[in-house]
């Protein structure tokens, strides 16, 4: 189970996250929607301490970290229990697709090389890139790079996968294959927290949709309720804008 309590982040005095409380059940797929600059990405980045939260507590399984007191070891433990998929893929540019997926297994989890490689090859097959094992990121399409990015996150076996606008940097032609892969990850009951602007995808994949604005959760519920019967006028306005 994942629990976030009072998560707060300020940039230059302005609160980008305003005491966010959020619980995510094991296997739950939660999609965060909302206007740009409302703290959606910051929420994900704070959960992974890529941005250090100013206050709040993050609990992932047995690991519970208080933002104000978090030391280096706490942060590493939290990061190792989660996996992050970046908008711009964030693949290691000097390593092949296979090596990108193996890296965390070998360096962080200290698994034997042969075992890590076998697992990475299984994942390459799963993401449909078995033939690209030895390709470097620069020679892959955007869609392929993001699939490797997701594969790298899958390999870790994280309790929570964080997706930060995984299709926003992609040419439209590559969006479909990345969403397909995310569907198959979701089908394995992987706990996922996804920030996306793909509303149709959100409706289809989410167990719960969260609407954020101004660093707060304004409304949340099952997709049918959020998209078909929005209560808050801000959510109604937002949906009218994105569907227009």
């Amino acid at each position: 189970m994942i629990r976030i309590e009072g998560l707060t982040k300020r940039f230059d005095g302005t609160a980008v996250l305003n005491a966010i409380d959020l619980e995510i059940a094991k296997g739950e797929r939660v999609v965060v929607i909302g206007p740009s600059g409302t703290g959606k990405s910051t929420l994900l980045r704070c959960i992974n301490f890529l941005d250090r939260p100013d206050a709040g507590r993050i609990t992932v399984g047995d690991i519970s970290v208080d933002a104000t007191r978090a030391g280096r070891a706490d942060i590493l433990a939290l990061r190792r229990a989660t996996a992050f998929v970046f908008q711009n893929y964030g693949l290691f540019a000097h390593r092949t697709a296979l090596e990108n997926i193996m890296e965390a297994l070998v360096t962080v989890q200290k698994r034997p090389r042969a075992e890590a490689e076998a697992q990475a090859r299984r994942i390459l097959k799963e993401i449909g890139l078995a033939d690209k094992a030895d390709s470097y990121p620069a020679s892959l399409s955007g869609g392929q790079q993001q699939r490797v990015g997701i594969g790298r996150a899958m390999a870790i076996g994280a309790q929570l996968m964080l997706f930060d606008e995984p299709t926003s940097a992609l040419d439209p032609e590559w969006v479909g294959e990345v969403l397909d892969l995310m569907r198959s990850v979701a089908a394995q009951r992987q706990t996922m927290l996804i920030v996306t602007h793909e509303m149709r995808f959100a409706r289809e994949i989410a167990d719960r949709v969260i609407f954020m604005e101004g660093g707060r959760i304004v409304e949340q519920g099952p997709p049918a309720q959020i998209f078909d019967a929005p209560q808050d006028p801000r959510l109604q306005r937002f949906l009218a804008r994105v569907s227009a």
């Binding site: 992974n48 301490f49 890529l50 280096r72 590493l76 990061r79 190792r80 989660t82 996996a83 992050f84 970046f86 711009n88 893929y89 964030g90 693949l91 290691f92 540019a93 890296e103 965390a104 360096t107 962080v108 790298r152 870790i156």
Partner: peptide, 19 residues
């Protein structure tokens, strides 16, 4: 993006620099 990717998979600073 390379620093953040290394951090996100739980590398220590030393691992991040070396690898």
């Amino acid at each position: 993006s390379q620093w953040e990717a290394a951090q996100s998979i739980g590398m220590t600073q030393g691992q991040m620099m070396r690898r």
